[in-house]
Design a protein around this nucleic acid. Structure first.
Lengths: 190, 190
DNA sequence: CCAATATGCTAATGCCATTAGCCAATGGTG
DNA sequence: CACCATTGGCTAATGGCATTAGCATATTGG
């Protein structure tokens, strides 16, 4: 029997594409095995199981998102930085809904990768902190502002990517309005 | 064999409690059957299956949340109304994380209850619209503002209820800071 | 070229959802 | 009070998915 030539990175990447295309809840070892042309148990040569695969995917996605935000922020400040980072965040979620869903893990999942995942999440947080520092926000207020910003971005993206905005009003405009509102709120934060 | 005396409302309520106590992803017909002291297939006499049960639960939860928001809003306006509704929203999610998770359904799920669910979601939206009207926001801007408000509330609640806020900073204070920021943003919306 | 390792496979187990079909409890009616 | 239709429970059987065990064949380093 000829080999399929799978590797751990290939398996994770295929899982990411499968999740993006068909939804995170459709990410199953059976579907993944079919996609890569291999019998289901063969996947266990590359990943430790479904949970481990999801943990791996989560780590990768958080890293990708952090990097996208970082790229967007470089060379900008205040409103420009905020708008660019917000747009990058939203774009990532729309392009990679399955991966993004994977980033939402119950904290305290004590898997192998928990520490790495925390580190990647920290990278993303640092980008937000840098943007907020441009508004002159410091100390505890910085944490408050980062949480508010993250909440808004996550909430909007989560609702949009599940089709939760029912009304006909253009969603791009609503997003711009929200980011403008964030800019005003941050300009007089504390 | 003595009867367990189940009814459809009892089954749904027990499912809600199970989801709140052990997590929405732990809501399974097997676990529910064990909880109510009945063999798994017996549940099919009351609900059409797991998906139907989840749809039912979603509908109930959206209704409960809308009602909580409505009660909080009555007799208040602007900042007072905003703060009360936001607090009620957050409290509902923290008290009923499993139910809240059920409210997040991919739109276009063409189940029997889709229309009723839309109606319940509309009730909730009306509360937000009423609050925002107090800020003098109208027309398309009203939709934008409602989406921003909903995004912030949903995002914060979703992150908090999964333990996603890592840093030690007090979460209550962060929530208050976010709501204050929303108040400022809405006071100069468009 | 050969041996060690890596990568694939089939078979077997267990959990969950679903359907079919049976039987007993319940409640209304003559 | 007895009868019977309905209702709500059950067991058995099926099928999907995850996981583990054990086997066989490619690949690769020496």
């Amino acid at each position: 029997m000829p080999r399929a030539g799978l590797t751990r990175p290939i398996v994770v990447e295929q899982a990411a594409q499968l999740a993006d295309e068909h939804g995170y809840d459709q990410l199953t070892l059976a579907a993944l095995a079919k996609r890569v042309g291999v019998a289901l148990p063969s996947l266990y040569k590359h990943v430790a199981g479904l949970d481990a695969l999801k943990a791996e995917l989560s780590l990768q996605a958080i890293g990708e998102l952090a990097e996208a935000m970082q790229r967007a922020a470089v060379g900008r400040s205040r409103g420009d930085a905020l708008r660019a980072v917000a747009a990058a965040y939203r774009a990532y979620v729309l392009e990679h809904p399955g991966r993004y869903a994977a980033t939402v893990r119950v904290a305290g999942s004590a898997d192998e990768l928990a520490a790495e995942r925390r580190a990647a999440a920290d990278d993303a947080a640092q980008v937000l902190f840098a943007v907020l520092a441009g508004y002159g926000i410091t100390g505890d207020h910085l944490v408050d502002a980062a949480r508010a910003l993250r909440s808004a971005l996550h909430g909007f993206a989560a609702i949009e990517s599940t089709g939760g905005f029912g009304l006909p009003r253009d969603i791009d405009r609503s997003f711009d309005a929200m980011v403008d509102g964030l800019d005003r709120a941050l300009s007089s934060w504390a």
